[in-house]
Nucleic acid binder design. Structure first.
Length: 597
RNA sequence: GGGGACGUAGUUCAGUUGGUUAGAACGCUGCCCUGUCACGGCAGAGGCCGCGGGUUCGAGUCCCGUCGUCCCCGCCA
């Protein structure tokens, strides 16, 4: 027997036709001599009627149906009487009057039902993922993911990009995140690593002449998880030869337009751009959320004596955060927002603007004016304590003052986001369908690694510095800007890329600046340094998180809602119960001994 | 590694100051019901209160430990 229609397909125009539906019993309404069954598949549900008067034997058969049985219903499509139409579903104007019923499979009572309105807890959903995935919302998200991926593939392919696969079993490069390791049986004691990204392979594809590459590819990072971080995740990875950053922006804006269109949204291009320094000063973050107003430096509105009264540093920024339409806060609410502020460096919070207005009316008025705050907006001030902070680092090479500024800005930026989340209902700026994209450019090349007491690559060590900063690589690493860029959406980093180093001598200089000896560079990246010597075209690219894009499009709070088989916060797959110990024999074959305690 | 929230019926939850027989809704089982669509009505079954220990005459409730899930910080080039 052949299915003639899916469960979401039948309409009034089909009335009178014979139809065969197959699917799950979504709900059963047994009225005695009349039984209604909603038969569900991924396209929807259709009501099937069993009438005792019409066919007693068939009616008896339908009596045994239970939730989640898989059935085939054969019958005639009937236009419903006007008073029995269900306006809530697309198939609600028709029903299938059954002539025959086949029970294709019975079902045990499931731990929860896909049709249930209240969700079971996540542990349950992950253990019985196949049932959870039957839910409308999950079916929608997975379909959305498919459409988005296809739109991106189609766009990039049309623009001349080849989708090229790169190895999953590759070489461990102990930079950045921890690797997932795969032991080699043939060479006991040696390990492959799963890629954190196909970074070096895609660069080598440029050296190999493929010119434009992309891949929708799984990446693996053994770091602690978050709602927006899974140990394996999917990147839209691309690389091109001879690009300016603008060329990369165009491609990304192009495929994002296609992806959002596939999801039913129109977005505006080109995206606005902002340097890293601007982002930090205006938003206290390298991934600004543009849906709310930026912060304002109101340092110049304070008189010198005010600053000493408030014990505030005059040389550091004084930042006003404005959250629209929050209204006046009660004493208790003010106390409640204090814990949202984490005093980085010597940053301190003034959450009571009213009090400031009382003590310094002129200053307060100027702050209102400068920040453009409306009377009903919430204003809080973040400044630096005038007491010199005891800084953990020694040695005078680092730009200390700048770092203190940075601490004030980022402390304010974190508070801004936390306040925005808390008062989302008041300002209403977080309603869906408002997509504020942004390019953040000119990232610093290096970051000071406090633990390792050394400079580390802010992006990755293959990122090209700005031409104009080349001579500062040794003398003033902190001020070197990279040809790196992030694409940001509503405060989420969607992707990150750069123009790469294509000259072997510059690559060596960067490794050197990162404190790597010639020997270290050779053992870790020798193959790559060598490849650079055989005629490497200038190249650059970017990688975007597919999961995050789909998450935002789905309006979901967690990546787990858009990944069919995700892992828990402890990187466990509850359905298959992985990871597990393995047998002694397996370990022996790999030459691995597990330390017991 | 650190901080926080949660864990009670198949599921979602309630459970007072530590007190006698641990409740509700949905689901499940049986019966009734010819126009329901989150059908309705009646009856019923269903509990290692995550696990281990302690305090107490008495623990779902208090304490300690442990396991699990979620969120955050660190971490994620």
């Amino acid at each position: 027997m052949q299915r003639t229609h899916t469960c979401g397909a039948l309409r009034v125009s089909d009335a009178g036709r014979k139809a065969v539906l197959m699917g799950w019993v979504n709900r059963r309404r047994d009225l005695g001599s009349l039984i209604f069954i909603d038969v569900r598949d991924r396209t929807g549900a259709t009501q099937v009627v069993f009438d005792r008067e019409r066919n007693p034997a068939l009616h008896d058969k339908a009596e045994v149906l239970r939730n989640e049985y898989v059935v085939a219903a054969i019958g005639t499509v009937k236009k419903r009487d006007p008073n029995t139409v269900n306006k809530n579903i697309p198939t609600g104007e028709v029903e299938l009057v059954a002539d025959e019923l086949r029970i294709l499979n019975q079902a045990k009572q499931p731990p929860f039902l896909p049709s249930e309105t209240v969700l079971p807890n996540e542990e349950m959903r992950l253990k019985y993922r196949y049932i959870d995935l039957r839910r409308d919302a999950m079916q929608f998200n997975i379909e959305l993911r498919h459409k988005v991926a296809m739109a991106i593939r189609g766009y990039l392919s049309a623009k001349g990009f080849f989708e090229i696969e790169t190895p999953f079993m590759t070489r461990s490069t102990p930079e950045g995140a921890r690797d997932y390791l795969v032991p080699s049986r043939v060479q006991p004691g040696s390990f492959y690593a799963l890629p954190q990204s196909p970074q070096l392979f895609k660069q080598i594809l440029m050296i190999s002449g493929f010119d434009k590459y992309f891949q929708i590819v799984r990446c693996f990072r053994d770091e602690d998880l978050r709602a927006d971080r899974q140990p394996e995740f999917t990147q839209i990875d691309l690389e091109m030869s001879y690009p300016q950053p603008d060329r990369v922006y165009e491609v990304v804006e192009g495929f994002l337009t296609a992806a959002f269109k596939a999801a039913g949204f129109q977005i505006k291009t080109p995206f606005p751009r902002m340097t890293y320094d601007e982002a930090i000063r205006l938003y206290g973050s390298d991934k600004p959320d543009l849906r709310l107003p930026p912060m304002t430096d109101v340092r110049d509105t304070f008189a010198q004596e005010n600053l000493s009264n408030l014990a505030v540093s005059a040389s550091s920024p004084i930042v006003a955060i404005c959250i629209p339409k929050v209204g006046e806060l009660s004493r208790k609410e003010r106390d409640d927002i204090k814990p949202l502020f984490s005093g980085r460096g010597n940053a301190k919070l003034f959450e009571d603007f009213k009090r400031l207005e009382k003590s310094f009316p002129e200053t307060a008025a100027k702050i209102r004016e400068k920040s453009g705050a409306q009377p009903e907006d919430l204003i809080v001030i973040v400044a630096a304590d005038s007491k010199p902070a005891t800084h953990p680092s020694e040695g005078g090479v680092k730009p200390e003052v700048k770092q203190h500024d940075h601490a004030v800005y980022t402390a304010a930026g974190l508070l801004r986001v936390a306040l925005a989340q808390r008062y989302a209902a008041q300002h209403g700026a977080f309603v869906r369908r408002d997509f504020r994209f942004l390019w953040v450019t000119d990232f610093p090349m290096f970051e000071w690694d406090e633990q390792g007491k050394r400079w580390a690559a802010a992006h990755h060590p293959f990122t090209s510095p700005h031409e104009r900063d080349m001579d500062k690589l040794q003398s003033d690493p902190a001020s070197v800007r990279a040809l790196a860029y992030d694409v940001v959406l509503n405060g989420t980093e969607l992707g990150s890329g750069s123009i790469r180093i294509h000259r072997q001598d510059i690559q060596r200089t960067i490794f050197h600046a990162l404190g790597m000896t010639e020997e270290e560079a050779h053992t870790r990246f020798g193959f790559f340094l060598e490849a650079l010597e055989y005629g490497t075209p200038p190249h650059g690219g970017i990688a975007l998180g597919l999961d995050r894009i789909v998450m935002i499009l789905a309006g979901a709070e967690s990546l787990r809602e858009v990944i069919p088989f995700p892992k828990t916060a402890r990187a466990v797959d509850l359905m298959v119960d992985a990871p597990t110990p393995v047998s002694e024999a397996q370990l022996k074959e790999l030459g691995i001994q597990v330390k017991k305690n």
